[in-house]
Write a protein that binds this DNA or RNA. Structure first.
Lengths: 219, 219
DNA sequence: CTGTTACCTTAACGCTGTTTACTTTACACT
DNA sequence: AGTGTAAAGTAAACAGCGTTAAGGTAACAG
């Protein structure tokens, strides 16, 4: 039953299938991922795939899960050099999120379209995943006094929805993820940067305090 | 050539096609919208559609444009009773955005997946559209001193990406657009409401001024 | 040596978007 | 009134899709 019971496989067709599916997805999006195309790349017939995956949906779901791990790893590696509890760490996370989406847009779009097995409850999200990383950064930032005290999960969701919205809106409206405005042309990362002040000081009208901390606080 | 030259059409098949396509989309999403299914609803053969639309993509694009207008109208009607320049008007816009997405999720998802003919430049967006409405609300809010002075387009994009991210993230991750967290279950609108404080005061650590304005300022 | 199982094949079914060739209907012009 | 043209519809077919069914082959266990 278990795969461990039969550890010797002459040729690992399953891995080849997953790799072919991943490549097709990255190259031409979900429309390019057909059972026959995957099979052709692997060098088998289309029906052979059904020995490893119940159907196309299961194959896609598996590819998405693999890609999610790559996404998480990308985020993790983007903040290793940022001090814990710093606002820079949070900022780096947001920028990495955007960068990953733009560089892997073809299957970034698929990641969330075929989410699959996310738990209902926030608390049950995996330990090493991107959410946990994001959350820990928020918790640290609160503890070090870099940002306001509030429910960490609420804060994560707040920040997450923001970068996610920025990326998805730009990706779906502007194919090149750029936004021309009053002469200058901005991409998602630059927009994210321009939003820092809004995020940190909020939309309230300018009040006295702001100048006191000066530009150093701009996250 | 022009449709005005032949104003008399015995039966308006085109309108029936569009209506059938819209209904199918709302009922079963993009997967339910097939040329044959549309044709069957109208009572013609599938190929008859090609007399009115070049191909399926053109049909979908047209339906999307129609739906966008409905979306704009929905937003417009949501703020008619909110005073210009008020933060409530901005808030109502965000809430309407979320409400429309949740109530029409099947083709809200299609709206941005098949965006079609959005202009490259922000300035060229249509006058009566949702963006213009959003932008005017921001301009008024700035002028009346309700929110900080800043580039209106940047502010609109900032707020827009936020509600858009909230909706798309929840819609794609949680089929019922709810988020369970520490016992309580929140939907998108409630989350949006919980974010008000973050949006208005920002993420900066609590400083002196806040209490001065009191709870009345919470938008 | 036999039975079982993993792994693969081809053929086929019903669906899809789209093209082709063909009718029918209606109106405009001489 | 007769002819030409264009609109609006049809059925048949093609290539592609996901998937199922039936069958074959090779390896391994008893």
């Amino acid at each position: 039953m278990s795969r461990l019971a039969e550890p010797l496989r002459t040729t690992d067709t399953e891995a080849a299938i997953v790799e072919a599916a991943r490549d097709l997805l990255a190259e031409g999006g979900i429309r390019a991922l057909s059972m026959r195309a995957v099979a052709a790349r692997v060098g088998v017939s289309a029906t052979a795939i059904y020995n490893y995956f119940e159907n196309k949906q299961a194959l896609v779901r598996h590819v998405v899960n693999v890609s999610f791990e790559a996404f998480d790893a990308y985020l993790r590696s983007a903040v290793t050099d940022k001090p814990e509890g710093s606002v820079e760490r949070l900022r780096a996370l947001g920028e990495a999120y955007i960068r990953f989406a733009l560089e892997n847009r073809q299957y970034f779009q698929v990641l969330f379209a075929f989410h699959s097995d996310l738990p209902q409850d926030i608390e049950e999200l995996p330990e090493g995943g991107g959410y946990a990383l994001f959350r820990q950064a928020v918790v640290d930032a609160i503890q070090s006094g870099s940002i306001r005290k509030a429910d960490p999960d609420l804060l994560v969701l707040y920040l997450w929805t923001h970068v996610h919205g920025l990326v998805t809106l730009l990706l779906s409206c502007q194919p090149d993820a750029r936004c021309r405005h009053s002469g200058e042309e901005l991409n998602a990362t630059e927009l994210f940067s321009k939003f820092h002040e809004f995020r940190y000081y909020g939309l309230q009208p300018e009040v006295a305090v702001r100048s006191e901390t000066g530009s150093a606080a701009a996250s």
